[in-house]
Amino acid sequence: MEFIVSASTDIGNTKRTNQDSYHVRVYRTGEGRVVFAVLCDGMGGFDYGEIASAYVVRSFFSWAGERLAGVLASDHPDQWLRSDWNSLIEYCNGAIARFASRGKHVIGTTLTAMLITQQRYSIVNVGDTRAYEIAEKLCQLTKDQTVVAQEVREGILTPDEARRDPRRNILLQCVGASEEVHPDFFFGETRENAVYMMCTDGFRNELSEEEIFQSLHPDRLTAWEVSGETERALINLVKQRQERDNISVITIKTF
């Protein structure tokens, strides 16, 4: 299986800084080529959100450099990923909190990290950045850790009410500003001829599911130039629709 990887970001209409951070890399391992992608949406006054998001992305990649090959070669990669990523998140959470305690501001970041191997995908998620699978339909792989998403799951709000709710930006937890972080993990089989998309809330707030499905359909993303152009076109569309946040998206097509 081959991959076409692309990623784009934009500061958006109103923010003074871009606090999103991401990195995507293809590794050659004993188990074939794998893609590792990490996307973080930082929060905190001034540039501090970016410090948090960049720190987490960097930590995950220094982990990947050291451990990824070994973990994939082990008998139970899923449980190793779970264990390693849990420790990494706990570690980053402590490090960011210590840094934040020097100033007044609460600093934190969401995190979506996704590993795609020839057989399986593994995701760890904290907060409201998302991962999707686009094949014959659009399928959200992650579960938002927000107050309104929780209430939708409990049946208190409808998805439509959640979109308009004034509390829609309240995360249940994030890396750096929660006493303890309890990430969600998602595992599944990698599909051929699919697009795995990761994005921050700024990217998806103003787009409908149908728009995402149509524009990022695997049949459309035939080369990385096309992926990049499509991403930028969608970002421009989102900006025209007056999105206020930073906007970031990663696409990984399998074929």
């Binding site: 929060m43 509390r167 309240i170 929660s178």
Partner: peptide, 22 residues
């Protein structure tokens, strides 16, 4: 500010009306 993303972990066991707008 309501439009800023914030994290629940910082506010103890906040009541729903503490999130503003309610």
């Amino acid at each position: 500010k309501v439009e800023d993303t914030t994290c629940l972990g910082t506010v103890g066991y906040a009541a729903p009306e503490q999130f503003g707008g309610l």
